[in-house]
Design a binder for these strands. Structure first.
Lengths: 337, 337
DNA sequence: TCCCTTGCTTTAATCGTTTAAAGTAATAAC
DNA sequence: GTTATTACTTTAAACGATTAAAGCAAGGGA
């Protein structure tokens, strides 16, 4: 079964290709196609099971109705959430999503962006990886519409959608203080990523405003390529201080999962011996013996905002938009009351 | 910054477009392009930062170097695993993956397949949903290269890659019997999907060959759109039989997670009061108080097999390939020793 | 001198669409 | 009875690449 094109329909009906195109694009009225022909053309298209060749259309129209999405790691819960949200929103707007996962790797990220551009995506939604500033600047110079999501670089002015990480971390820490915790640890990645540093800042400010004297041992930094061991070491430190911590706040879900696994191993009782609070949610929390109190990101809203912003950019509204969203604190039973 | 095309390079160097095309496609030798020009052209391409327009190329070549992937639900652990595997393998072969999630919905599935075909993907890798037989037959009639993965319809002869579900369920059940269990329940979805029915068959045959008299109450069927409640009811049944079950085998990870949550709620001790075995793994198992014994699917091998098979089909080798893979039994501590 | 290679380059058709612009009857206006 | 208008329809040039086929010098052989 060979592909049927406009030509086939035109021949079948006995009119020109142009007429067929007009009718099938809903321009029958404006181009004053006779009702008779319009009818015949529609029937023939149906009969021959015509599928427009989007490739040809894209070439002519300089629009592919495709947006490219690069997430940091498809294995993150955040990634599947945001992918789903973006896909759903894009579909509503009649766009297709081409997507890839950089696995937090700079080269892979650059490659993916390249592939997507070569495929003529109309725009990009990106979760940038560490040290991808040059790549981002390149996109700006090339005037390719894009919006950053989840993360951004404060030194580069971009359109981006992100959580108010400072406030989120602040709120969570404040919550722990209100619950009566006096020695709150924070486990974060050692990173140059702004959004994670903001979480540090929120944590520290909340302590200060809560009149808690910060002890440098409380802020533990984990190296992402030595995660498991580093987390264990971090927890060993905060549990064995002369005054051990009574709460630990993990800066991401991956940190939480690893941390909780180790705490399980140590048979540390939660929240009896230590309270636990996590940034981001995880499917794994569902089966933990006590529901983990965590910050939930509004992925649907983020996805929608990202797609909306990108489409505005694509449609040549020269806009500058920085959307900052709030997280919800989902109270479980992993923090002392 | 406007897009640079072959024309721009040609003008810059002062040659024809054809020459540029030859050189940039590595046909310099065979087309006997002078070294001088070849050199100049390559330099100019670099200088102007030329990116070939894949759309135009695709239109001419009738090949997009894109494969379409439709998974059942991006939230399944299996989906992210297989997506990753397929992406990686496709990348090696220089193909891009366009993907979508049907959310187990028949219409969404059909729509996605349609969109992908309109985008002229070279072929499709599909996890078909229930009642999508017509859609599959349509693809065969249209001679569109595709391979089914994870699931297939025995009544339609297709190329497919799937687990040997019968053997996997058989092996797992046999394992439970060897561990001394006498009353083994199996919780599965109520479904017409062949691969899930095969799991039933494996379970039943293992019981028979293990000389265990099957009790109809042991095989519980859950309605997927009333999952939570149905699972609870199922567990209530098997736990409250005059002779309660001493093991429960869940047919999928989603069933396991829901089941374990309920067992947690009931404070049923695992494996003390009941042993648990799960098909598929889940991130959630990591934080369960005892590691869950489960069957692990070889997603990497499946992804590779799917891509390989599809590319063979695309390259006009008219093949018929049904790949059946084995799962591993990952022994945890959720089954009585 | 004429023709045939050889070595290199250009011309032009093509892929399947879109869409200005031009063409063509029939009807209306003067 | 011309000319204008209306109501359609077709022509043909794009879009940016690929690639047969044709073109064109310069050198070699007769």
């Amino acid at each position: 079964m060979k592909k049927v094109g406009l030509k086939d329909i035109a021949e079948h009906v006995g009119v020109s290709i142009a007429l067929v195109s007009y009718v099938l694009n809903g321009q029958a009225e404006i181009k004053q196609v006779s009702k008779e022909n319009a009818e015949k053309i529609k029937k023939a298209a149906e009969l021959l099971n015509y599928r427009p060749n989007q490739i040809a259309k894209s070439l002519k129209m300089h629009k592919t109705h495709t947006i490219g999405l690069v997430v940091a790691d498809i294995n993150y819960r955040y990634s599947t959430g945001i992918t789903r949200a973006i896909e759903a929103e894009a579909k509503k707007k009649n766009y297709t999503v081409l997507f890839g996962s950089s696995n937090e790797n700079e080269e892979t990220f650059a490659e993916l962006v390249d592939v997507l551009i070569n495929r003529q995506v109309d725009g990009l939604i990106l979760v940038p990886v560490e040290n991808s500033q040059e790549q981002i600047r390149m996109l700006q110079k090339a005037e390719i519409p894009f919006v950053l999501i989840d993360r951004n670089f404060p030194e580069i002015k971009t359109n981006h959608i992100a959580l108010d990480n400072y406030k989120a971390a602040y709120t969570a820490t404040e919550y722990l203080i209100k619950q009566g915790h006096k020695r709150i640890a924070f486990v974060n990645y050692k990173t140059t990523l702004f959004h994670l540093q903001e979480r540090d800042r929120g944590y520290l400010d909340a302590l200060k405003n809560g009149n808690i004297d910060f002890n440098a041992d409380w802020l533990q930094e984990v190296n992402s390529n030595n995660r498991t061991a580093d987390i264990q070491q971090s927890l060993d430190v905060i549990l064995n201080l002369s005054e051990p911590c009574d709460a630990v706040f993990f800066a991401t879900d991956t940190l939480s999962i690893n941390g909780l696994k180790y705490l399980n191993q140590l048979k540390t009782k939660i929240p009896g011996e230590i309270s636990v609070l996590s940034f981001d949610e995880s499917e794994a929390f569902e089966l933990f013996y006590c529901p983990v109190t965590h910050l939930r990101q509004p992925v649907e809203a983020m996805g929608k905002a990202a797609v909306d912003t990108l489409l505005e950019l694509i449609n040549h509204y020269k806009i500058s938009k920085q959307v900052s969203l709030m997280s919800d604190l989902v109270v479980g039973q992993s923090c002392r009351e």
